[in-house]
Design a protein around this nucleic acid. Structure first.
Lengths: 361, 361
DNA sequence: ATGAAAGCGCTAACAT
DNA sequence: ATGTTAGCGCTTTCAT
């Protein structure tokens, strides 16, 4: 119970040196006599000293903290249900957040977090998790950064119209996005060569001898949705196929099943589908099985992402892998470089997709 | 680009008052003349002032930040794969974290985050996400708190032997756990009446006319695993059934399928199973379908949690609902009370489970 | 009700 | 190479 009463002063006295010397040892500044350094280290060890972050931040103007923002577009609606049973009978607080719940149901975000943590943790840094789906929530994000609570923001948008990136840029706050913003903004981002991914899917289906192809696209207001489709189409076009039936989905399992149902209604003879993410591909597979169809014998299915559901899915999905963890780590690194001033210009880092062949083709 | 150059002093000058008065206005301290208050508010608005968090924390000794720790037991192994392709050719950093990836594949954590954020956000607070599966990572957590980087920790353990709760208590750091620690520790926690949940499952299966029952349990070193089983057994015992076939799983889909395979080998005539979480129940359902079994016609399946997979599962799962979001919010509230000193004694908050009937029974 | 002034614990000139 | 010292921007007595 020796809570935070210890200061540099205490350690300095213990080691018989000045505050400045102890500070130098802690921050690994050279120009410290090795002997003295060891004495100081031992004093730190003995006293169990831990430097006060607030005091340090106050002078360095750095927090060594970054915000990881899961950002949506629009509606002011927080959808906070009232919490039910509280032990002490008080009414519950905004106990829940529909947006957050929805978002974290997608395995994609787990991978983002995993990648970000993978980069940050070896540097003794940790992300502050923020959910920003309303104007008020976005305000909280900019406020948070303006207060110097974090050095910068990692932004993962779920909608095309997300105004957060441009707001951050306008305030001069360091930010890096996962995926190129739909609206042009002078901001750094990491992204995938989505078009190339679509091409890989098309070529694989063709190589498997499938000729009656269709595609379930992602939201077409998102660059990722557009590009995956464009790459798929281009490759087919080059192979002589001018027209490809398509149906738009919203990256959810249900939307995938619905889109597929629509495609089948008009094109019952399909023998191959490219689905723009694994979650929708799962819905497609389930729909096909429910209707007695065989995957891949009757219809071959190619997903996108190589998320955890690609393995969960029956059959396991052939899919276009997006190296989300690496991309997320790179995003964190880019932000750190911006914060440190090593990098100043908005930079794009594009990763290459990779075809992973499993049992659905 | 007017980065954080603004201080209280500037606003005070602008409003023609002293720093102290502006501070009072910002912190809502009474004893401020309404007229002056408005003048100050306007000055703040006009200048776009944002108080510096570090400076405030330094004097208040509060950060208004809490850590949300996903904690595992043991191994020192971080399993960090080297990141591949970095644009500038540098080798990648610890880009990935197998533990984090595994953990976030479970929809449970998304619900925890959703609940925590639901409580924190209306208070303009945000959780720092920490992953602690190794001794080094646990050290980072205590260090983080000892530095005053956060006021306390919310701990979600994934293993029985997790030493983190007792370490935090030993350091006198405020902490609240999700679920009672397997090792007795004087710490506050929220939990579910797991035994009651097991009872609900048993009674439901009996009410459905099932008599040849079995159960796939969770890890039996976890209180949750033990209690769910105990409740299930007790209810059957009270109904006259002395023996219940069981197989232990580890809360993953695969382990559920494997456990079920074992049970079927020895008891081919089973007509009902209680599975200790939804993820395993999904595995059970898949196994049954692959073997041509009908759910629920042939075997009725009851899951636990009511996580998102309960709906994803074919058929949708009858399950025992655990109000994770509410529990997580309550956990955050408990921590805040401890931090503020309103609550001092270790407190337990037990939530009641609820049966959700869907198509698997 | 308001202002003056004393720190919170640290880093970074600057001086030695 | 080490010590001295001046703040970082805020809250909070203590006067008034």
């Amino acid at each position: 119970m020796e809570r935070q009463s210890l200061t540099l002063e205490d350690v300095a006295r213990e080691a018989g040196v000045s505050r400045a010397t102890v500070s130098r040892v802690i921050n690994g500044v050279r120009n410290v006599d090795p002997a003295i350094r060891d004495v100081v280290r031992e004093a730190i060890e003995r006293t169990g000293y831990a430097p006060n972050r607030a005091a340090r931040s106050l002078v360095t103007r750095r927090t060594e903290t970054i915000a990881l923002v899961i950002s949506g577009a629009g509606e002011e609606n927080d959808d906070g249900r009232t919490g039910g049973r509280d032990d002490d009978g008080r009414p519950g607080d905004g106990v829940q957040n529909a947006f957050a719940a929805r978002v974290f149901a997608d395995p994609f975000f787990g991978r983002v977090i995993s990648g970000v943590v993978g980069f940050l943790r070896p540097r003794s840094m940790h992300p502050v998790l923020m959910v920003a789906e309303s104007a008020a929530a976005r305000k909280q994000v900019t406020e948070f950064l303006r207060q110097g609570s974090a050095d910068g923001a990692l932004v993962v948008s779920t909608h095309a119209e997300d105004p957060l990136p441009s707001q951050l840029v306008a305030e001069g706050l360091p930010a890096v996005c996962f995926a190129r913003p739909a609206l042009p903004v002078p901001v750094s981002y990491v992204d995938l060569a989505h078009r190339e991914g679509g091409r890989l899917a098309a070529e694989h289906l063709l190589a498997r001898g499938r000729r009656r192809l269709a595609t379930v696209t992602g939201p077409l207001d998102l660059p990722a949705g557009q590009e995956r489709l464009a790459g798929f189409r281009e490759a087919l076009e080059r192979a002589g196929t001018a027209y490809v039936p398509m149906a738009e989905g919203s990256f959810t399992r249900e939307s995938g099943a619905a889109a597929m149902a629509g495609l089948l209604a008009e094109h019952p003879g399909l023998d191959g589908v490219f689905v723009a993410n694994d979650l929708m591909a799962q819905g497609v597979c389930e729909l096909l099985r429910e209707r007695g169809g065989q995957v891949p014998q009757q219809v071959a299915v190619v997903g996108f992402d190589d998320s955890s559901v690609a393995l969960t899915c029956r059959p396991p999905l052939t899919t276009v892998r997006q190296p989300v963890e690496e991309m997320a780590a790179a995003m964190a690194r880019l932000l750190q470089e911006h914060v440190q001033g090593v990098r100043t210009e908005p930079t794009s880092l594009i990763f290459e997709p990779e075809l992973v062949v499993r049992d659905s083709t």
